[in-house]
Design a binder for these strands. Structure first.
Lengths: 134, 134
DNA sequence: CTCCTTATCAGTAATGATTCTTAATTAGAA
DNA sequence: TTCTAATTAAGAATCATTACTGATAAGGAG
């Protein structure tokens, strides 16, 4: 419903994410924006990252636990692996077999967290569907 | 290294999780404990849930985004699906095929988040391994 | 059984990521 | 150009979780 406007802030946030190839967090996007271009408030960065991922311009990577969420310019379907020590994120392609992961670089898998999201049967039936939950 | 003691609080937290079959969050465990048994402080509940999952008594389900983490008494390997509306968690068995998920009850999949954790090649090599990252 | 070390506790302040609030600004249709 | 709703900056608020502090108690040594 909402009419989406083209703002310079939104354009800067988008181009910043597209220029960063390291799955940046909102904080890192904010830092990069602050360093390079004009000043954009942190709330605006968060809001635009959410908006851009909703409209499919970028992709949001919801990290487990209290780790900060990341954003990805790569829209092709793939999964991610986080290094427990340095926090680096590595792309993972999922082949036909469940056990056949292929990594963009070597990675020692210690654990995995898969969470599917959607609707349970009850909520699907009485679907006044407001996306109550985050 | 740390010698683990047997405390009543730890025993209560464990038995509470074991008695709850609905993947409770730390807050829900705290509520249940407060309602039934004696008083245990919230910090103690959090600490014991972490400790119990580290020692393999229960399993921690790190939820993506800002959703509260959950705990599971079921140690058998399986994944989880969260309802976007009511937040209910449903068990998912992963068969041989990547596309072959089987659910404990009907669920409409709208999205999935898979995050592998472990060590990238650099961190694996210079492994003074302190688990710096959460 | 008593003593002693130190893991653990209760209570609460602090943290960190994210969202919300409010008043001012501005994109873009009329 | 004018008007209005979308957007912004700045900072307060929220929420899950962790850290801190002084008090308590588990369990091995004697």
């Amino acid at each position: 419903m909402a009419v989406t406007r083209n703002t310079v802030q939104r354009e800067i946030v988008l181009s910043t994410v597209l220029s960063m190839c390291n799955h940046p967090s909102a904080e890192e996007v904010y830092d990069s924006v602050s360093k390079n271009d004009s000043h954009i408030s942190k709330g605006t960065v968060y809001r635009n990252l959410a908006l851009l991922s909703q409209t499919g311009k970028i992709r949001k990577i919801a990290m487990p636990g209290t780790l900060a969420d990341r954003y990805d310019f790569n829209l092709k379907p793939h999964f991610h692996a986080v290094c427990r020590k340095c926090g680096k994120i590595i792309d993972v392609c999922c082949k036909e077999r469940a056990d056949g992961f292929s990594f963009s670089e070597p990675f020692k898998v210690e654990g995995m967290e898969l969470v599917l999201s959607g609707l349970c049967s009850e909520c699907d039936e009485n679907s006044s569907d407001k996306s109550e939950l985050k």
